[in-house]
Nucleic acid binder design. Structure first.
Lengths: 126, 126
DNA sequence: TGAACACATGAACAATTATTCATTTATTTA
DNA sequence: TAAATAAATGAATAATTGTTCATGTGTTCA
């Protein structure tokens, strides 16, 4: 994600639409917010993590259970749980040797549902 | 994303929680749906695309305008618009030399807002 | 018709990332 | 205390991805 800032040569087209561009620029949220938003969706953008989140929405589970449920290694699941935790989407509690994970956000299901709506509409259209 | 299917050795822990795992498995959406969901969020998981989507939610714009607004090359923007189009998130219309892009989904803003809610809550907590 | 413009596209490259494997840490229990 | 279990972690690797650069395509207009 090389983000070299570089002056852009405006084409004639821009001169015509200058007003619109200015207005849009004003209305856009600040850079950092948009970046954070992308980072959040990036976390949702992996099917393993989507599965984990969906599972945890159904029930609190330990790492080992999740691994069995998804037919993955304990290590792979653990790595992904770390990503989810850093994004404040899941939390955990220790009970002896076992660590139980659960959702730490009420919007997860709502975000899922919005996404699902989009997908299902597309399927209907075909 | 190597997805080699591989038998997982269950640990003792699983035997105990077997019922929960079975129940969760039943309730989960089918594999393909979860995969599609991840693919959709993957599209949202890039700040350039987030910016483009946000901009297009404010106004229909041509490629060149977007490039200027985001201070990016026309090529980079064009590549990303292609990704957004393939995900059925934007559509375009041609007006002579100029191609205008606009949103092709009513849920985009709602998905954004759910994500924003999460982010803003985290900021408050710190 | 041909030059100019707006956009699309393909290849290449650098950066990121998901999983695996080996190892370590924390806890229980024999 | 030593062995066993559940989970976390670091390094390595393969795969994916965003941007750049060069070039191709479609449209306008002189």
């Amino acid at each position: 994600m090389a983000n070299k800032v570089q002056p852009i040569e405006r084409c004639d087209c821009d001169v015509i639409h200058e007003d619109i561009v200015k207005q849009v620029k004003k209305k856009m949220p600040q850079e950092e917010t948009l970046y954070d938003l992308a980072e959040l969706f990036k976390v949702f953008g992996d099917s393993t993590r989507i599965k984990i989140l969906w599972a945890l929405d159904e029930a609190e589970m330990c790492v080992c259970d999740i691994a069995f449920l998804l037919n993955m290694t304990q290590s792979a699941v653990s790595h992904q749980l770390r990503v989810l935790k850093q994004a404040d989407l899941v939390k955990n509690r220790r009970a002896g040797k076992i660590v139980f994970y659960s959702l730490d956000d009420e919007h997860v299901k709502q975000i899922f549902n919005q996404g699902l709506t989009h997908i299902l509409e597309l399927r209907e259209d075909q």
